[in-house]
């Protein structure tokens, strides 16, 4: 067992024993070697179910808003990217900061299940993971596999702004001193350079295959509306019909709702079963908000709020 897992369990056990929280939301072993699944620990006797490894891809802050009526205090395990969701939820008054105990874990990057499954047999049970320089050795009941980390990182992890959580009441694990590599938006610039026709062709082809499962919305810590506009029956702003025009309306509306609020955790991209690069839309809005309003990535600091929800005299208005 790695040191982080050991300390994570100790921290969780103490929080539960001291009744500081009545639930710890973290990661447990998954059904396949390179997956984890979110676990909800309510007893100090169960903390052994918690793990930390390079497969802790899920963002867990969304569960806080799902359980916002939970009477007690909850602890949640966050990585750097997810930790921005904590401030985000507090700024939107969804979850008061003092209702959550944040267990932050410095993270050097998470490995993609999809990428790993295309390279190695992932069907066994995980025994151990060892990092060896550029490589990771994944020891499973079906054998040991050595993989080059850079080939299997989640795409988002190659441009990480916060290896260390921006907020944590308890930090488990050593701080990561690697210099952050914030996105220089090269990819977005590529799309910006396209003609409107090219953009339409690209996006309509992507939206055309959306199955409207709403996994992107449901995993998003920025999507916290009491009733989502896409679930409203009267008026039915967006029809339930699955076609490219309704799908486009869904994706663009969702992107605009998240402008200045998206914490750039990349979960929408990860969960999409149809591999639609949803995050590109949010990235474009993030880039615009940064350039126009000098905004930090939302949720990076305790202060602040939705940049679109604020007004400053010096706001640019050349587009008006």
């Amino acid at each position: 067992m790695n040191k982080v897992t050991e300390n994570l369990r100790k921290t969780a056990a103490k929080l539960l024993q001291d009744k500081e929280v009545d639930m710890v939301i973290g990661y447990g072993l998954g059904s396949e070697a390179v997956r984890t699944q979110p676990v909800f620990i309510t007893s100090p006797d169960d903390v052994d179910k918690l793990v930390w490894n390079p497969f802790c891809v899920n963002g867990l802050t969304k569960y806080l808003s799902d359980m916002k009526d939970h009477p007690g205090k909850m602890a949640v395990v966050v990585k750097g990217c997810d930790s921005r969701g904590i401030y985000r939820l507090a700024q939107d008054s969804i979850i008061p900061r003092d209702k959550v105990v944040v267990i932050g874990i410095p993270c050097a990057g998470q490995l993609s299940y999809t990428k790993l499954a295309s390279k190695i047999d992932v069907s066994g049970q995980l025994k151990d993971v060892e990092e060896k320089g550029e490589d990771v050795v994944i020891k499973t009941s079906k054998g040991d596999f050595t993989v080059k980390k850079s080939e299997v990182f989640l795409d988002k992890c190659t441009t990480c702004e916060h290896h260390n959580p921006v907020v944590a009441d308890h930090v488990v694990g050593d701080a990561i001193n690697t210099c952050p590599t914030p996105d220089n938006y090269d990819e977005i610039k590529k799309y910006e350079a396209m003609s409107p026709e090219e953009k339409a062709k690209f996006w309509l082809s992507q939206f055309g295959r959306c199955i409207r499962c709403y996994a992107c919305r449901n995993t998003c810590p920025g999507c916290t509306c009491r009733e989502c506009v896409f679930d409203a029956i009267k008026p039915d702003w967006v029809g339930k019909e699955i076609d490219v025009s309704e799908n486009e309306l869904f994706h663009l509306t969702r992107a605009f709702h998240l402008a200045g609020r998206c914490v750039d955790c990349g979960e929408c991209d990860r969960v999409c079963p149809m591999d639609i690069p949803i995050r590109l839309l949010n990235k474009k809005l993030l880039k615009d908000c940064k350039e126009l309003f000098n905004m930090e990535t939302p949720g990076s600091t305790e202060e602040g709020g939705s940049v679109i929800g604020q007004y400053r005299l010096e706001d640019p208005e050349e587009f008006m």
């Binding site: 499962c213 709403y214 996994a215 919305r217 995993t219 969960v271």
Partner: peptide, 13 residues
């Protein structure tokens, strides 16, 4: 069910 996020992925695939 605690970890379910209530999306429709499983049913639509």
């Amino acid at each position: 069910s605690l970890r379910c996020i209530g999306c429709g992925t499983c049913t639509f695939v």
